[in-house]
C-alpha cells in the first residue's frame, strides 16, 4: 500500500499546480505528507473578501483509502485567522463528516475537499463558534480523526456537539 499515496498525491499536485477553482490556492507542498492551502470566500458578509483562511492537509500512507487530516491554521505573517463558523472550533479543528472515516470516500481529493469547505463557509449565516468551544479547545488532546463528533444530520455536513 505504501506506494499508493505518493503516486496519487504526485498526480493531484501536478493537477493542482495547473488550475484551481477561484478562491482556492496552493500555498506549499514541500513533500507528499503535508500541504497548505488558502481559501477565500466570495459573497458572504461574515467573511470579508480580503480575508484568506489557511488549511493544513496531512496525509497518511493509506491516502486516499484513508481520509486526510484537515485543519485551519492561524498565523501572523501573512495574517490568517480561523474562520468563524458553528462547525469550526477556534483551534482550527473542523467538524465535517467528509473528513471523518465514515464520511470519507477515496474518490474525494484535495481540490474537492477545499470546494466543500469553501461552500460550507459560503453558505453559513451564523457568525459563531460551535457550542462548548472554549471547553473543547481547552480540554481536547485528541487528533481530529479520533474525535467522536456527533453529527445531527450525516447527509449534510452538520455537527452540533462532541461526545467526550
Amino acid at each position: 500500500m505504501a506506494g499508493m499515496s505518493s503516486k496519487r498525491l504526485q498526480k493531484e499536485l501536478s493537477k493542482i499546480q495547473g488550475t484551481l477553482p477561484p478562491g482556492i490556492t496552493l500555498v506549499s507542498a514541500p513533500d507528499l505528507r503535508e500541504w497548505t492551502m488558502d481559501i477565500s470566500i466570495i459573497d458572504n458578509p461574515i467573511y470579508p473578501p480580503h480575508e484568506t483562511y489557511r488549511m493544513r492537509f496531512s496525509f497518511s500512507p493509506s491516502y486516499p483509502i484513508e481520509a486526510p487530516e484537515v485543519v485551519f491554521v492561524a498565523c501572523t505573517s501573512p495574517e490568517r485567522k480561523i474562520p468563524l463558523h458553528p462547525h469550526i472550533y477556534s483551534n482550527g479543528i473542523i467538524c465535517l463528516d467528509l473528513l471523518d472515516s465514515q464520511g470519507w470516500s477515496p474518490v474525494h481529493n484535495v481540490e474537492s475537499v477545499c470546494i466543500s469547505i469553501q461552500s460550507m463557509l459560503a453558505g453559513n449565516s451564523k457568525a459563531e463558534r460551535p457550542p462548548g468551544d472554549a471547553e473543547f479547545v481547552r480540554s481536547n488532546r485528541q487528533r481530529p480523526r479520533d474525535i467522536n463528533f456527533l453529527y445531527h444530520d450525516p447527509k449534510r455536513a452538520f455537527a452540533g456537539g462532541i461526545v467526550f
Binding site: M1, M4, I65, S101, Q102, W104, S105, P106, V107
Partner: peptide, 17 residues
C-alpha cells in the same frame, strides 16, 4: 485491487455511499 482495498475498510460505494 483498489476497490477491494477500499471495501476492506468501508463496505460502501465510493460515490453513493
Amino acid at each position: 485491487a483498489t476497490i477491494y482495498e477500499h471495501l476492506k475498510r468501508s463496505p460502501t460505494d465510493p460515490l453513493t455511499r
